[in-house]
């Protein structure tokens, strides 16, 4: 069982997010980066599958500038066997088709049985890389997986639907599955894992070796959202507040 897990490095939820001078992305040197939380769940799921099957290989694959080596090391420390780093030094790549083509070009040489991705990234949230790669490699795909069960040559995936509904889907392997957050409890790297990670292989694919292609979509500017909503702040002690709420329900919203 050979599993690829795609990991992205994204700004942490606590990080400051100052804009860059051209106001088309954040000023990366001032940002604290972390492993994209949904990808952390995907990695854990890969490690659990490998443990359950008592065999196999987990390969973390990440695209980005040299800073992404940090999350690659983290993945190796948690137990991934080796890593592939697709070097990408330019401005943030915002074209999912191009990104997926570049991943596909590298992944196809390896014949993975399973490709796992997080549902979406916390930065741009395009939420499609795993499915795009699946289609490009000619593999079946499933998203929003909250439970997986690998059988002989097949994988059963419990998918989260909307409004509290779920569905089991069975796919032949190889397949590309995107993982919903919360389905497992991602482990922390052990000291032994951190030491061991240093000896593990990281294959670096230089930017010049990546598939070239035209970028067909772009992020032109970023800005702080403004609310156009006029909010009435209801003030006073509890009795005054209750009185005003009752009045609003009756006269303004007309629901009682």
């Amino acid at each position: 069982m050979k599993i690829a897990v795609l990991i992205k490095q994204v700004p942490g939820s606590e990080s400051t997010l100052p804009m860059n001078n051209s106001q088309d992305w954040i000023d990366e040197p001032s940002v604290t980066f972390v492993m994209n939380p949904p990808d952390n769940f995907a990695l854990e799921e890969a490690l659990l599958i490998r443990e359950k099957m008592s065999e196999g290989e987990v390969v973390v694959v990440s695209m980005g500038p040299s800073r992404v080596q940090k999350v690659i090391r983290e993945g190796l420390a948690k137990g991934a066997d080796r890593a592939i780093h697709l070097e990408e030094d330019g401005q943030i790549e915002i074209d999912p088709l191009l990104i997926a083509q570049r991943f596909t070009d590298i992944l196809k040489e390896e014949n993975f049985d399973l490709i796992l991705t997080g549902l979406q990234s916390d930065d741009t949230g395009m939420g499609q890389t795993g499915v795009l790669i699946g289609e490009m490699l000619g593999l079946p795909t499933a998203t929003l997986a909250i439970e997986t069960d690998v059988l002989d040559g097949q994988i059963r995936v419990k998918r989260e639907l909307e409004s509290g509904w779920f569905q089991w889907v069975q796919l032949p392997l190889p397949a590309s599955i995107s993982i919903q957050s919360g389905l497992n409890t991602p482990r922390y790297p052990s000291l032994k894992g951190i030491m061991g990670a240093k000896k593990k292989e990281i294959r670096t694919v230089p930017n010049s070796d990546l598939l070239s292609g035209e970028q067909a979509q772009s992020m032109d500017r970023i800005f702080v959202p403004t609310t156009s909503k006029k909010t009435e702040v209801i003030e006073g002690d509890a009795d005054q507040v209750v009185e005003r709420i009752v009045e609003i329900l009756r006269s303004d919203i007309k629901v009682t």
Partner: peptide, 29 residues
Amino acid sequence: PFIPDIVSLSDQGFIKQVLNAKLNAEMSS
């Protein structure tokens, strides 16, 4: 190209939330 999860239209493109909805981005193709 697939530009997902758009919250509004602008003159030049599409507005999408980024970075956990802390910022908005204008996207175009």
